[in-house]
Amino acid sequence: MSALLTISGLTKSFGGLRVTDDLSLSIEECTTHAVIGPNGAGKTTLISQLSGQLRPDAGQIIYADEDITRLDMAGRVHRGLARSFQITTLLPGFSALENVALAVQARRGSSFRFFRAARAEKALNDAALACLEEVGLAAQANRLASELSHGEKRQLELAVALATGPRLLLLDEPLAGTGHDEAEALIALLGRLKSRLTLVLIEHDMAAVFALADQVSVLVNGRLIASGPPARVRSDPAVRAAYLGEEEADPCCASRV
C-alpha cells in the first residue's frame, strides 16, 4: 500500500502561537485516520491547511503523488480532496437540494452556461438527491438550509462533501452538536463510507473514534504526541496523561471510551 496523503514538516503560526508544529503524517488509501486532541490543539487548523483554505508557513503536502502545498481549495476538490466544516458552512438561502446540486454541478460540465434554468437540471438534482438519501435527509430536500435543525445542517454538510465525489474526505467534527439518534445514524453512515473512501476524522466522541478508526493520531499544542492503531494509542502513557486521562476524570466521557 502506498500513502494517499503525506504531510511532512507542516508548520503554521498565528502571531506567536504555533498551531501546527513540524507535523509529519502519512495516510494510507482506504483507511480511516482519526485525529483527536483537546480543544485548541490545532485540529481544525490542520484540516484547513490540508484543504487549501490556509497556507502553511513551512512543510509539504503530497496528495496522490502530487505536491499540492500551493494548490487552491478548488483545485484540491477537483482532485478528490474534500472537507466538511466544524462550523456549519452552507448556503442559507438555498434549499438543501440546491446546496448539494451545486457541488454536483461543480464537477459535471461547465458552469459558464447562461440560459437553461439550473434548478431544472434533472441529472444534477438526481445525483444530489442520492447524496441526501445517503445521509438520511431526502425528506427535507426542498427546505431552505437556514430552516433546518442543527442536526439536519450537520447531515447536509456531509451530503455536500459527498457530492463533490471525494477520494479523501476530511471531516471536522461531523457529530458535533447532533442528538443521540442523529449521531448514531451518522456513525453508521461513516461506517459505510469507510469501505470506499479514505477518511480523516476529527471527532471528540471517543466511542465513534474507536469504532471507526484504523489509525489514531493525537494532537496536543500543534504537535503529534502519538500515532498508530487505536489499541496502541489508547494504552500509550503519554496519551493517557495528556488527553484521555482528562476524560477519564469526567465520568460521562470515560464511560464512552
Partner: peptide, 10 residues
Amino acid sequence: ENSLRMQAVG
C-alpha cells in the same frame, strides 16, 4: 451567500 462554501465544493 458564502464564498468559502463555494470554494469548498470546487
